[in-house]
Structure formats: structure tokens, C-alpha cells
Amino acid sequence: MGALNVFLLIVLAVSAALTIILILMHSGKGTGVSDMIASSMYNSAAGSGIWEKNLDRLTVITAIVFGVTICILALTFPVGTIG
């Protein structure tokens, strides 16, 4: 396994963790855990629109990085032998 694959595996793990965290930070429509976390992070009257917009952007960016990394790894990862 080369240095590129090790680097891509690290990027994959970090982007996966960030994507999960950012998705969980989105405010929900109910009274679940995401609403409790979101209400403690910012006041709903003070710039929640900007917070949500930036959170959406970061989530999309990390999801794209995750997808591109998967595609690159699929092309460059060493192929195992069968039998």
C-alpha cells in the first residue's frame, strides 16, 4: 500500500466523521436530541439562518470529499488475489 492510499484512507476517515457530526448538528423538526444541541449552540433569534446556511455548506463539502475519496480509492487501492 502506497503513501497515496494511506493519505486517502486518513482523508476518508476524517471526512466520514465530520459528515456524521455535521448531519447530527442540523436542527430537526421535533423535540429530539438535535433540537437540544442546536438550542444550546445558538439563540434562535440571533443569526440562525447564517448558522444553518454555513452548516449546510460544510455538510455538502464534507460529503463531496467523502464521495470523491471513495472513487479515488476504488481506482487506486491494491487489488487482492483470489485463490
Rank of each mutant, 00 (worst) to 15 (best):
S39P: 02
V65R: 00
N43P: 00
V6F: 10
L4V: 13
T62F: 09
F7A: 14
L75D: 05
L24E: 07
A3Q: 08
I72K: 07
V68E: 01
L58Q: 08
I10M: 11
G2D: 11
G30V: 00
L22N: 06
L58V: 00
S27R: 10
A45V: 08
C71Y: 09
V68Y: 05
G83I: 00
A17Y: 04
I50A: 12
C71K: 06
I10W: 13
T31S: 11
A63K: 05
T76R: 15
P78N: 14
S34L: 01
G2Y: 07
A45L: 13
D56G: 10
I50N: 04
Y42H: 13
M41R: 12
V60C: 03
N54D: 07
L18S: 02
N5H: 08
S39G: 14
G83K: 14
M41A: 15
R57W: 14
G80C: 08
A46D: 15
D35Q: 15
E52L: 10
S34R: 14
G28Y: 02
M36C: 06
N54P: 01
A13T: 12
S15D: 01
H26C: 06
L18Q: 02
S15E: 03
M25F: 06
A74R: 10
G28F: 06
V60E: 03
D56W: 12
T59C: 08
A63T: 12
A74S: 11
G32S: 04
L22M: 10
I37D: 03
H26Q: 15
C71W: 07
N43T: 05
L24Y: 05
H26P: 03
V60I: 15
M41Y: 05
V60G: 06
A16R: 02
S48V: 14
N43G: 07
L75P: 01
P78E: 15
A13F: 13
G49C: 01
L8P: 06
F7N: 08
F7C: 13
A63M: 07
S48Q: 04
G83E: 11
F77Y: 15
L8T: 09
I37Y: 00
A13H: 02
E52S: 12
S40H: 08
G67R: 01
V6C: 04
G47C: 10
M36N: 11
T62D: 03
S27Q: 10
I37H: 02
L8E: 03
K53H: 09
G32V: 06
V6N: 06
A45G: 12
T81A: 13
I20T: 09
S15H: 00
A13G: 12
G49H: 06
K29E: 08
I10T: 12
T31M: 01
L12P: 03
I37V: 14
M25E: 03
N43E: 10
I21V: 15
L55V: 00
L18D: 06
G30C: 09
E52P: 02
G28S: 15
V33G: 03
T19V: 04
G28V: 04
I64F: 08
L18V: 04
L18K: 04
Y42K: 07
R57N: 12
G83F: 12
L9R: 14
L18P: 01
A63Q: 02
T62K: 01
T62C: 11
W51A: 02
L73A: 05
